[in-house]
Every structure is written in structure tokens, then in C-alpha cells.
Computed example of a mutant assay.
Amino acid sequence: MKITISTILFFITFLCYGQVQQIENDDSTSAENDSIINVISEYQFIDEENYPDAIIYAKSDAQQVYVVHQGIKMWCDQAVFYKKDNFLRALGSVRMNQGDSVLMNSKYAEYNGNTQLAFAAGKVNMRSPETTLSTDTLYFDRNKQQAYYRSGGTVKDTASTLTSRVGRFFMQEKKYQFIDDVVIVNPDYIINSSQVNFYTETGHAYLYGPSTIKGKASTVYCERGFYDTRNDYGHFVKKSRIDYNNRTVTGDSLYFNRVTNFASATNNIVVTDTINNSIIKGHYAEVFRDKDSVFITKRAVAISLQEADSVYIHADTLMVTGPEDNRIVRGFR
């Protein structure tokens, strides 16, 4: 038999093609296997009457059922796996881990390997390095890296406890968005708000809608503002107001420091003294609560009610000092 060069090249091409096809098939099989939820357990059985088309896995005396899928790990006492749908139900002492970003415990969980959506119910507890979330039901979208609840939840931070009816956790931004009946409880104050965006790394809270920060000696109101829950200071805009025992400070923009008992205000400022029936107006003010003093400038005017008449004092700068029963108004330049 005469073997030509063309014949040799044909066989070489055929062999190479076969090897390429084998590699492609192996890669395809590997990718397919990686997309399917992998369940590991010593005990498995089928119960077509109660769980048609499902494989049931049960824990042994030594270890729980172990589930793994594309970076997420799960442990439970019993798992019901629908391989055709790539869907799993986990029951009993469920633990779910995604690196350091998600460490979750619950009584029950569901996981869809195709959509990568998870659902947990029954004393759900999700921990991150900075906070701990407790709720009754929790939804987890791995594609968006978001977890959310709609039936009430509690988040414990290093300095405060936050509760709301609806909440969403953005894992990459390390941000919570609390909506509806939001309450932040700190040993020194309580915050009530319609919506709060809270950053777990810094403890910064951004307030939206009617909001109050109530402490022992003062109450802050605003409809948009910022508060540092760990260092106790804030900046407030839109209908901002600070109420002390006998003074009310309003302005377009307010700054408040609870540690130093200092407040400052900018633009359209009104300081009302309810004890002495007086009002001070201007466009920049500083309030030192410990010294019981107010400094106000930029078109400053003090209005005092005396014997059914109003006395007006204008100056470049006004300073009001002294206790409530002996306050002195000073004008400069």
C-alpha cells in the first residue's frame, strides 16, 4: 500500500480535530458541572410521594449535609434537591457562607442555582465584619450582591441598634438602606426617620424625610441631613431646627456637635428664647449651650417683647450671654 504525504496530513488533521473536540467536550462538561449545585452527604433517598423528582439528603451523626455552588457554601440537617431545576431546599440549623461578606444562620433556606437567588426564614441572623442583622425572612440576590427584608429587621452596629420595617443591604458598598419606621437607638440619643442610608464602615447615617434626633438636653429636627453615629455630630438642611430647653434655633443649614454641645447655623437664622420672649435673627450664628451664649452676625437683629411693645436692637454682631433669668444682649460695631 502506497502512503502519500496527503494521506499522512489527513490522519494528522483528523487526530488533532478529535483531540480539540475532546477538550471542548471536557470544558463544556466541567462548566455544566460547575453550574449545578453540588450536594455531599452520606445518606440520600427518594420520596416520590412527598417530593417528586427530588433527591433527599440527610445529615449523619458526624456531620451535616454540605452544599457548594460557585463560591457559596451551605450546611443543613436535611436538603431536598431538584436537580432538573437546579433548586435546593435546606432545613434545620442552616448555615450559609459567602467568603467574609455573608455569614448567615436560619431554620430554613431555599437556593436557586440558575438565578443565584436565596431565601432564608426562621430566626435569620446575618453577620458581616461591622454589623449583625436579625429578621424573620431575608432575600439574597448573589448577582446584585444585595440582601433585603420586608417584614421588619434589626441591625446592631458597634455604637447603635437600628430597626425598620423594610431594609436592604448593599454588600459591595457596605451600605444599609432602611425604609419605613426607622429607629436608631444609642445610649445618648434616639433617631426616628422615614428613610436612613447607613454605612457600616464609618457609622455615617443620611436622613431623608421627617427626622428627629432626640437626646437628654436637645432635639434636632430636619427633613434631610447627615449624622455621624460614632462621633456624635451632624449637618442638617431643609426645615432644620434644634430645640434646647428654652431655645429654638432654625436655619437653612445647621451643624450640631453633641459632644461639645455646640451648634452653628447659616442663612435665614432665627433663635427664639421662649423664657425671655425674644427673637434673634441673622445669617450666621453659633450657639454654645454649656456657656449659655449665642453669637450671631450678618444683618443681626434682636427683638425683645417688653410691656406689650417690641424693642429692636441692630448691630453688625450680637452676642447674648447669661442664664435665662439674667441674659445680656451686646452689640458690636
Rank of each mutant, 00 (worst) to 15 (best):
K2M: 10
I8M: 10
F11C: 08
C16G: 14
Y17E: 02
Q19N: 15
V20G: 09
I23Y: 12
I23L: 13
N25L: 06
D27Y: 15
A31S: 11
E32C: 04
E32D: 10
I36P: 01
I37F: 03
I37W: 00
E42C: 06
E42W: 08
Q44C: 04
E49W: 11
E49A: 15
N50K: 15
Y51F: 13
I56E: 09
D61N: 10
D61V: 04
A62N: 15
Q63V: 11
Q64M: 10
Q64I: 09
V68F: 03
G71P: 03
K73I: 01
C76T: 14
K84Q: 03
N86T: 04
N86H: 01
A90S: 08
L91K: 02
L91P: 00
V94K: 01
R95D: 11
M96K: 02
Q98P: 07
G99I: 03
S101K: 05
V102E: 02
V102C: 05
M104L: 13
S106F: 02
S106H: 01
K107G: 12
E110A: 06
N114K: 13
A118F: 10
F119D: 03
G122Q: 04
K123H: 03
N125V: 06
L133E: 09
D136Y: 09
Y139A: 14
N143P: 07
Q146N: 06
A147L: 13
R150G: 08
G153I: 01
T154M: 08
T154L: 08
K156T: 12
D157L: 06
S164L: 11
F170V: 04
E173H: 06
E173V: 05
K174H: 06
Q177L: 14
F178Y: 08
V182H: 12
I184C: 02
I184S: 07
S193M: 08
V196N: 09
N197E: 14
N197Y: 14
Y199F: 13
Y199W: 13
A205F: 01
Y206L: 12
L207P: 12
T212H: 14
T212Y: 11
K216I: 10
K216R: 03
S218C: 13
S218Q: 15
V220G: 11
C222Y: 04
R224T: 04
D228I: 09
D228M: 07
R230Q: 13
N231F: 07
N231L: 09
K239R: 09
R241K: 15
R241L: 11
R241Q: 15
D243V: 11
D243I: 08
N245I: 12
T248K: 15
D252Q: 10
S253G: 11
L254K: 07
Y255Q: 03
N257H: 00
V259R: 00
V259S: 00
F262R: 00
A263Q: 03
V270I: 10
V271P: 00
G282Y: 06
E286Y: 01
V287Y: 15
R289M: 08
F295R: 05
F295V: 06
T297I: 12
V301Q: 08
S304Q: 14
E324H: 00
I328H: 09
V329D: 05
R330Y: 03
F332A: 04
